[in-house]
Design a protein around this nucleic acid. Structure first.
Lengths: 242, 242
DNA sequence: ATCAGTATACTAACATGTTACCTTTCGCTC
DNA sequence: GAGCGAAAGGTAACATGTTAGTATACTGAT
């Protein structure tokens, strides 16, 4: 078998983790965020082994905070821990993606229906402002920015429920969908369609019409899922067989 | 101030945790389950400090598995960790209860609607069998058993979605609701009404009618929430002010 | 008595040492 | 050469030692 040179070993393990100084909070939560970013951007490849000691060395810390971070990521399904054996980066799984989408849909439909009944004028203004930003980003073809603004819109609506845990669970469920989404080229047509769908949702909320808000959201998410299933068809090799 | 005798200190800390031998799995997950049971049954009182070392001593283990269990419980909102200071059992909070109910409702409605479309004859048989058991328990006035069977029915339906995470998130969200429910006396009338509501849900699923299943579930959960709000009215002192 | 400052005791967070289990490999047998 | 079993290496899990931050109790001055 081919042997690794010392140089290979050094380079292969470096610079994949964002330095902890970029984040704030306790050591273990910073490790968590750094690892999570690396996994979601596919800097750690699906299926790859995760060596705790390597992470410790690279970050210059001990095993305790790394273990805690790993435990959290395993609970979210981004890592798979084999007891007494090893830790692996989770494979992409269309099952996980579908489940994430299902949960997200359940939350978002319930949230939007509820929010339509309690939304304030100020909150409607916030939504319209977000849409304006999105419009600008579409015109500038700034797709990266558009995704961010997209996420912000959904979080805004979730936040209006004033439920604290809701948004965080939705985000966790959505992780697997987003990781898969890294693999598809952004499509300008889809982006502008998305803006239209967002506008429809906001209009329904502004009209304080729960049923319209629900069906607009339903349509929006169905388009998204249709899109993701296309990814599975195009790149089946990236997913673990179910 | 009144001083505690040595005897007081000993007895106050004992026998509140179920021995780890009752559970299986890794040490830390057994600690997690033992602590969780104690919190949910209110053996650990809301607001009380949780002394890790006390837990370690009582279970005869070291701090590592306890710390991991505490972290998980804190993530679920059953414990509150004050960094470098102390860990406290979470107060009952009607906000948490409402959020838990909201999430549960979102999940259950989505699940039941989905399951109505894919349910098999075997699965319908399982549901009917569960109903039969419930009927027997109602007749025997076995309310404890009825609650268990109730939970089993909901889990059964969740399981039919074949989504793995769904049931576990729903259960976690439901924890706060259940903890509050410990405080209300079981009402025989409500129990038999519940059975009727369950029957309506199962009938709708058996008829493979998503909309009927949805509205039957909606009604069932609305009754439950109405009931919980009555608890808040009757025993407001048990909840942390929002 | 009240308040400021300080010392102390306690805790979670972090570091490090140890154990037990799993996996793979290597040598032995047939 | 194929199949099996022992042994070694590597890992997560667990135990224990250390650090640093927080809250409380104490001291002394006003």
């Amino acid at each position: 078998m081919s042997e690794m040179t010392a140089t290979d070993m050094e380079t292969s393990g470096t610079a994949r983790l964002t330095p902890l100084s970029e984040y704030e909070g306790s050591l273990s939560s910073r490790v968590y965020m750094s690892l999570k970013d690396a996994i979601l951007t596919l800097a750690y490849e699906p299926g790859e082994v995760l060596r705790k000691v390597e992470v410790c060395d690279q970050l210059g810390i001990s095993r305790s905070p790394v273990s805690e971070a790993v435990a959290r990521l395993a609970a979210e399904g981004l890592l798979r821990v084999m007891p007494q054996s090893g830790t692996y980066v989770a494979q992409l799984s269309m099952d996980e993606v579908r489940e994430g989408a299902f949960i997200r849909e359940a939350f978002e439909l319930a949230a939007v229906e509820y929010v339509a009944e309690i939304i304030t004028d100020d909150q409607i203004t916030l939504l319209r402002r977000n849409l304006k930003v999105q419009q600008g980003l579409v015109e500038d073809q700034n797709i990266q920015g558009f995704y961010k603004s997209d996420t912000a819109l959904h979080n805004l609506i979730m936040g209006f429920t004033r439920f604290k845990r809701l948004a965080s669970i939705a985000e966790t469920s959505w992780l697997h969908v987003n990781r898969a989404r890294q693999l598809v080229l952004p499509n300008p047509r889809r982006v502008s369609d998305t803006l239209d769908e967002h506008t429809a949702i906001v209009d329904a909320l502004a009209a304080r019409d729960p049923r319209a808000a629900r069906s607009a959201t339903e349509f929006h998410l169905s388009q998204l899922i249709r899109h993701l299933e296309a990814v599975e068809r195009d790149r089946p090799e990236l997913f673990s067989r179910s």
